[in-house]
C-alpha cells in the first residue's frame, strides 16, 4: 500500500468515529471514568445544597473526595470479602 493510501485509510478510519454518536474505546481504562463522574455529581448536588455559595468550591472538592474514597473503600471491602472472608467461612 502506498504512503498516500495508508494516510487516506487511517484518516477515513479516524473520521469514521462521530463524537456523541459512537462510543469511545475506553474498555481498558473504564475505571478512570468514575473520577469525572464523582466530580460532576458533586458539582450538581452541592449547587443546590450549600446554604452559601461562597463555600461552594470547598464543599464540592470535599464531596468529590468523599465519593472517590467511598468507591475505593467499597472496592477494597469487596476484594477482602470475596478473597479472604468468604473462603475462610465456606
Amino acid at each position: 500500500m502506498s504512503d498516500s493510501a495508508v494516510l487516506t485509510d487511517s484518516l477515513v478510519r479516524t473520521l469514521a468515529y462521530t463524537p456523541f454518536i459512537d462510543p469511545l474505546d475506553l474498555h481498558g481504562a473504564w475505571f478512570w471514568l468514575l473520577l469525572p463522574l464523582a466530580v460532576l455529581i458533586a458539582i450538581a448536588y452541592k449547587a443546590v445544597r450549600v446554604p452559601d455559595m461562597t463555600s461552594y468550591v470547598r464543599q464540592t472538592v470535599l464531596f468529590s473526595a468523599q465519593i472517590i474514597f467511598g468507591i475505593i473503600g467499597l472496592y477494597v471491602a469487596a476484594i477482602v470479602t470475596l478473597n479472604y472472608i468468604l473462603p475462610a467461612i465456606l
Binding site: 450538581a44 443546590v48 461552594y56
Partner: peptide
Amino acid sequence: KRGIMAAIGVLGM
C-alpha cells in the same frame, strides 16, 4: 450561580 453550576453538572454528566 446555583442554576449555572447545576446545569454544568447535569449536562456535563
